[in-house]
């Protein structure tokens, strides 16, 4: 059975650390970074990249359109 692998790229400087993508992720991939960006927000990042399936949930709920999603069948 083909497996789906995904990855997301977060625009760190645009991210406002609202946490909505973290909650929306069904595989617990995302988390807010302990570091902050130029605006002082704890930006979102892939804490657990191996679990990502590229479902786009995070990008759909992101109010600042700062998540780009990639997916590949392996």
């Amino acid at each position: 059975m083909a497996k789906v692998k995904g990855a997301v790229v977060v625009d760190n400087e645009k991210c406002k650390g609202c946490d909505l993508c973290v909650v929306a992720c069904p595989h617990d991939v995302l988390s807010l970074h302990r570091e902050v960006n130029g605006k002082g927000y704890h930006y979102s990042y892939m804490k657990n990249p191996d679990a990502c399936i590229g479902c786009m949930n995070c990008a759909l709920v992101c109010p600042d359109s700062c998540i780009t999603v990639y997916r590949v069948r392996v």
């Binding site: 990855a7 990008a59 759909l60 780009t68 990639y70 590949v72």
Partner: peptide, 18 residues
């Protein structure tokens, strides 16, 4: 699979609309 191999233009599924 390395993340770098996933993050390629041909694998893009969601991006900010123009």
């Amino acid at each position: 699979m390395d993340i770098k191999d996933i993050i390629k233009p041909e694998n893009l599924v969601y991006d900010k609309t123009k």
